[in-house]
């Protein structure tokens, strides 16, 4: 239940911030959540909430023309048509990287404040989670 609440909260906060272009809130929220709550599931919830927030915001902005927007951005950035899907993918991956960076920093701060045995255990968990993402 806690994981679901975390995911929803992250999605809501990120989406609200994105309305005014505050992309950095994505990293900040992730850092605060992971600082407050430890665990692999929490990290996954943060990432899920982030993806939902960014994806929903993109849909809200571009609507049914998301592919067309991506196509145009690819044209402007790469001078190539037909790569709209790549721009969508890059945007989502970028959002997840922001959340991951925030999560890592949040986790580090939390571990530094905890006792050593606890920190070791959580660090192991955190590293596994990151590795899981890479897989």
């Amino acid at each position: 239940m806690r994981v679901v609440i975390v995911a929803v909260a992250v999605a809501a906060l990120d989406a609200a911030a994105l309305l005014v272009g505050w992309w950095w809130v994505t990293a900040l929220v992730a850092a605060l959540v992971v600082y407050r709550f430890a665990g692999k599931r929490v990290l996954l919830a943060v990432l899920a909430g982030t993806a939902v927030a960014w994806g929903a915001s993109m849909v809200a902005q571009a609507g049914t023309r998301m592919s067309a927007v991506g196509d145009l951005v690819a044209a402007m950035a790469l001078n190539t048509r037909g790569l709209g899907w790549a721009v969508v993918g890059v945007s989502l991956v970028y959002a997840l990287l922001l959340a991951l960076a925030g999560s890592w920093v949040g986790g580090v701060v939390r571990r530094l404040r905890r006792s050593e045995p606890e920190a070791i255990a959580e660090q192991d968990e955190s590293v596994e989670a990151v590795e899981a993402q890479h897989v």
């Binding site: 272009g21 992309w23 915001s57 902005q61 998301m66």
Partner: peptide, 15 residues
């Protein structure tokens, strides 16, 4: 950050 975020970045092209 400014370019890719949905609120003020490229995704506003349609809007």
């Amino acid at each position: 950050g400014g370019a890719l975020n949905p609120g003020t970045g490229v995704w506003r092209l349609a809007a």
